[in-house]
Design a binder for these strands. Structure first.
Length: 994
RNA sequence: AGGCCGGUAGCUCAGCUGGUUAGAGCGCGCCCCUGAUAAGGGCGAGGUCGGAAGUUCAAGUCUUCUUCGGCCUACCA
């Protein structure tokens, strides 16, 4: 024997592949996108799944303005994972993305553009303005489309739905007409922020708060005579009955305080709060003053106790006597006179009784403890007025919200002639934005009536238009509402919510309470870029939908909009739609709340398109959409079709930074999808999405991304190893299940197990479970266990040994499943991996279906026994570890393990067929030794052994096989030398070219 | 301010209807391999479950309070 040892490396069957270890995702991903585009993947998927049961995830439309952010990226990736998963589960998951195109933000941007060109809003015609809005939306839509595609999202990008398609706009109009026809639509009014200078409605965001000098006044509301007595609880301290003679309020007044005197003529009520202690005061002495005070000795005033001093000071009252506490016994029944009832020229318009209403908005911070309530001129006033409908009805007071101001902010004919035409704010001239004639005239009238208690000036912060900087007023305007009750909409919606499946389940509760509590749906907006409310109103306020020729009229309207879009309504004269009996009829010029647009997507997308079923399986959006799209869609659909447009609703949380704080530019903790794609690849974002818990807020940050990058590498390498191990594998080499070693059967058992878990998780949208299950399978079961053990057989067994072929048979099965299971998540890399195994010009892993596990793979018995073996394997590793640390042994192959022959272990081994002792030489023998499992060279079980012990085989004089590096005792008698009999057989086969 | 929801190791997640010393993977530390090599393997150290009180024989799991965070209360989408 020479001292030179032969190098057996070339006789080994090492994994062989060109598949790169490093992905280069930022560069590679766009190439795959181009490839899929070239082979028409989406179309091929549709073609392939024709006739299958549809799974429709209906897209919630993003707003076509600005770049996408992490939230929108997350949303689209989640949708994509859901779609791809269901497609591969065997559905036809046809996904049509959509966009929301109308609305205020775009309107603002376009206005700004025109202003930049020196053209004010008035100088631009409606059609020109809207045309530009349309272009603007279109431009951003294109940008976002590319950004979404870059994330790997597959869908019908060439034919998305858009709320601004002419057909969509017509369909949206049609939906509203249907609602009008069923009587669920009504006209009411509501105060909104209005800038008289620009004569336009303003959104909260169009308003800035600045100081304004205001006239503040204290006003007396005389109490109407009351009769009788009231017995109150509790009784007084001395036990005497607490009886109030209500006539003591004769001549008394409730005092209010306001900084907007011009709203007094519109007063309808006085609001109070039960938790504010109030008293009835009788003035006994007045301050000496140059002015003659408006209050008189003997005046009885009702004011909050803690504010009495302020009021007295303002009214120049030196002293007063507190007569008694005033509380609900009074408020409930008291009716007041309007303070202007007796003014000259009142025309009887202030004869109505002014009730007292309980309101949450009343505080004792300032004023008198009582709030003047003009439902036309304040949100709180409006709410308290509308929500007290019952009390008003009982009093015989119609709960109308009078429209007291016109567009220019001048009193209308609702007011007495004396006030008509007076302006609240000057809208032109040098004093533009300053007080107009209304305030002084109201003050004058109040003095005439003797109901002005005090007046003064005050500086307060109030809303101003951010364009003109002029003050903004609150003004009631006619508005359109969809009634929650008239057609039973609320009940219907609540019932549908009960029937809907929610992920997570708490979503049902959230949207349920919102719908149950919500007021009627205000759908009109005084804006330009939107779908018109295509209604015509008759001389008596009747709707054209109530007319006999309504259908013909509607047909004309819808045809016009379908032809040229919304301008078909705005630019067409009424006569064209309503040729007959149109005297006194007028077109409504308002547009629809954009939520009505998106709430109708199910109508103009799902129901309109023949290739989509009418009702979606799933709506999937962020949790903010409980009050948004989920709700608007539900209400719209229930109002028109009497049912929800979806079977299921999934809500995900918001993307927050690694500390759980929301992302904001000011915090500097934002991340953009684009940056992540460029630096790491969209795949990393997809893994992040899949591994996060969408039911809560999703954290992202550097460390989290790095974790996902690491996970990606591990998976990529695992797949790469399989590709290498399968080099040259042909299915003809496959070994029958029954001929496989237990280890292979166990892997197949795991595949069967995961198959079941996986399908359940897909149906439950539990992607993080899928990802963690598969990731752990790769690291724990495959990499650290199965592959580690099988390296020996794979590299060293004779090429055609049963054991080696069985291993490759199983790896092929694992590969098929792993790639398909991961494909919905890692759509780029799984394609790359798939193509490396199955090169094809036009093939794709995304055309594959998830494969069932054949009966018989699932084998709980093998699983349990294998568990025992693995436990033992861990014990052996623990025992070897100290020797490695002490440098006694390096490779575990140098070790010989001796362990107690426990019943559990020996029976597991015999059940699993891990029985062979001798160094394997028969290529047809599929069995393993226990040493193979431990990756040691010898393992013996002994009844005598007390615990697991390890011996050094070098020390014992064993020979290291030059081929497999295992230690063995050559049997010179049969010619064994430097390699084991197994290796000798393998080399012989190799050299003979087998 | 109100409504809804969430807070388990450095990170991502498991922990079913309350019941053994709270789990996994990653990361980290140490070690091995050098025939998956900008790979692979082994061992190990890390939480008392945001905090407090309570119910119970027993609480991460139920109740209350509290703290931190998120979403919603817009003529924003």
């Amino acid at each position: 024997m020479t001292s030179e040892k032969r190098d057996y490396r070339d006789t080994l069957f090492l994994p062989k592949t060109d598949f790169p270890m490093r992905a280069g995702l930022p560069k590679k991903e766009p190439e795959w996108l181009a490839h899929w585009n070239k082979i028409g993947l989406f179309e091929r998927l549709r073609e392939q799944s024709k006739g299958r049961k549809q799974y429709i995830l209906h897209d919630g439309p993003p707003y076509a303005n600005g770049h996408i952010h992490m939230g929108t990226a997350l949303n689209k990736i989640l949708k994509d994972i859901v779609n791809r998963s269901h497609q591969m589960l065997g559905y036809d998951a046809h996904y049509v993305p959509g966009w929301d195109c109308h609305g205020l933000p775009i309107e603002w941007k376009v206005e700004e553009e025109f202003r930049g060109k020196g053209r004010s809003k008035d100088e631009v015609s409606g059609p020109e303005f809207r045309t530009r809005c349309r272009e603007y939306a279109s431009e951003w839509l294109d940008v976002q489309r590319e950004e979404f595609k870059r994330l790997g999202v597959v869908g019908e990008w060439d034919n998305p739905y858009k709320t601004m398609n002419f057909q969509s706009e017509a369909d949206i109009c049609g939906e509203l007409l249907k609602i009008a026809k069923t009587g669920q639509l009504y006209r009411g009014s509501k105060p909104i922020m209005w800038s008289p200078v620009e004569q336009t409605a303003l959104a909260e965001a169009e308003v800035e708060y600045a100081d304004r000098k205001a006239t503040q006044i204290y006003v007396k509301f005389p109490v109407r005579p009351m009769t009788g007595t009231k017995s109150l609880l509790p009784v007084t301290a001395d036990g005497a009955p607490n009886i109030v003679d209500m006539t003591m309020f004769d001549g008394a007044s409730v005092v209010i305080w306001t900084t907007t005197p011009w709203t007094i003529p519109a007063n309808r009520a006085v609001s109070y709060a039960l938790n504010i202690r109030c008293g009835l005061y009788e003035v006994t002495e007045l301050e000496e003053s140059d002015f003659s005070p408006w209050s008189k000795v003997g005046d009885k005033l009702i004011v909050a106790d803690n504010l009495w001093e302020n009021v007295a000071k303002a009214g120049l009252i030196k002293s007063a006597k507190r007569l008694r506490t005033v509380s609900s016994y009074f408020y409930e029944d008291a009716l007041l006179d309007h303070p202007l009832k007796s003014m000259e020229g009142a025309e009887g318009k202030y004869d109505y009784p002014v009730p007292m209403l309980c309101g949450d908005h009343v505080t004792a911070d300032a004023g008198t403890g009582f709030v003047h309530t003009a439902p036309s001129h304040g949100e709180d006033d409006y709410v308290v007025w509308i929500s007290n409908q019952k009390k008003l009805e009982a009093l015989g007071i119609a709960p109308v919200v009078p429209m007291t101001l016109d567009d220019a902010g001048c009193y209308t004919e609702v007011m007495p002639t004396r006030f008509q035409g007076l302006d609240v704010i000057r809208t032109s001239g040098k004093k533009r934005g300053q007080d107009g004639k209304a305030n002084p005239e109201v003050l004058k009238a109040l003095v005439e009536c003797g109901n002005l208690l005090a007046r003064g000036m005050l500086t307060l912060r109030d809303a101003h238009s951010w364009r003109s900087k002029a003050p903004v007023i609150r003004r009631a305007t006619p508005q359109w509402f969809i009634s929650m009750s008239k057609g039973g909409l609320r009940d219907k919606a609540v019932a549908e919510i009960e029937k809907t499946k929610f992920w997570p389940d708490r979503g049902r509760n959230r949207i349920g309470t919102m719908v149950a509590d919500r007021p009627d749906w205000l759908i009109s907006r005084q804006r330009n870029w939107g779908v018109p409310i295509t209604l015509m109103v008759g001389p008596n306020g009747e709707l054209h939908t109530e007319r006999d020729d309504a259908d013909a009229i509607n047909t004309r309207i819808l045809a016009a909009v379908e032809k040229v879009g919304v301008d078909g309504w705005f630019e067409t004269p009424l006569e064209d739609f309503m040729p007959d009996s149109n005297d006194g009829w007028s077109k409504v010029t308002d547009i629809l709340d954009v939520w009505f647009d998106s709430g109708s997507t199910h109508a103009f997308c799902l129901k309109r398109r023949d290739d989509l079923k009418d009702r979606a399986d799933l709506y999937l959006e962020g949790s903010d959409q409980h009050r948004g799209w989920f709700q608007s869609s539900l209400l719209e659909s229930c109002a028109v079709y009497g049912e929800a447009p979806y079977d299921g609703v999934l809500t995900h949380g918001f993307v927050v930074d690694e500390k759980g704080l929301k992302m904001s530019k000011s915090l500097g903790n934002t991340m953009s999808p684009e940056d992540i794609s460029k630096q790491y690849g969209a795949e990393i974002m997809r893994i992040w999405t899949a591994s996060s818990d969408w039911a809560n807020d999703l954290k992202i940050g550097r460390e989290i991304i790095q974790t996902n990058v690491d996970a990606y590498r591990k998976l990529r390498n695992t797949l790469r190893y399989m590709i290498g191990a399968l080099d040259g594998y042909d299915e003809a080499d496959a070994v029958d299940y029954n001929d496989m070693p237990a280890l292979e059967k166990w892997v197949l058992h795991r595949l069967a197990e995961i198959t079941t878990e996986h399908e359940a998780a897909v149906r439950n949208h539990d992607h993080k479970k899928i990802f963690s299950t598969l990731f752990n399978f790769c690291t724990v079961d495959l990499s650290a266990f199965y592959f580690d053990i099988r390296k020996d057989a794979l590299y060293c067994d004779p090429l055609n040994s049963t054991r080696r072929r069985a291993c490759r048979t199983v790896i092929d099965e694992v590969f098929q499943r792993l790639t398909t299971w991961l494909a919905p998540i890692m759509c780029f890399t799984m394609e790359e991996v798939w193509q490396a195994r199955h090169p094809s010009e036009d093939g794709s892993v995304h055309m594959e279906l998830f494969r069932d596990a054949p009966d018989g793979w699932l084998n709980a018995d093998i699983a349990a026994k294998m568990e025992t073996v693995r436990d033992f394997r861990t014990q052996a590793s623990e025992a070897i570890e100290p020797l490695r640390k002490d440098k006694v042994i390096k490779s575990s192959l140098e070790a010989s393990v001796t362990a107690p022959a426990t019943e559990a272990l020996t029976s597991a081994l015999s059940a699993l067929g891990i029985t062979r002792q001798e160094t394997y030489a028969n290529p047809a023998d599929p069995s393993d030794t226990l040493a193979d499992y431990l990756i040691v060279s010898e393992c013996t079980l002994s009844e005598k052994a007390a615990d697991v012990s390890v011996a050094d085989l070098k020390e014992a004089g064993w020979t290291k096989c030059e081929r497999s590096w295992k230690y063995f005792k050559p049997n010179a008698a049969v010619g064994e030398g430097e390699i084991t009999p197994r290796d000798a057989a393998a080399v012989k086969a190799f050299e003979s070219g087998a």
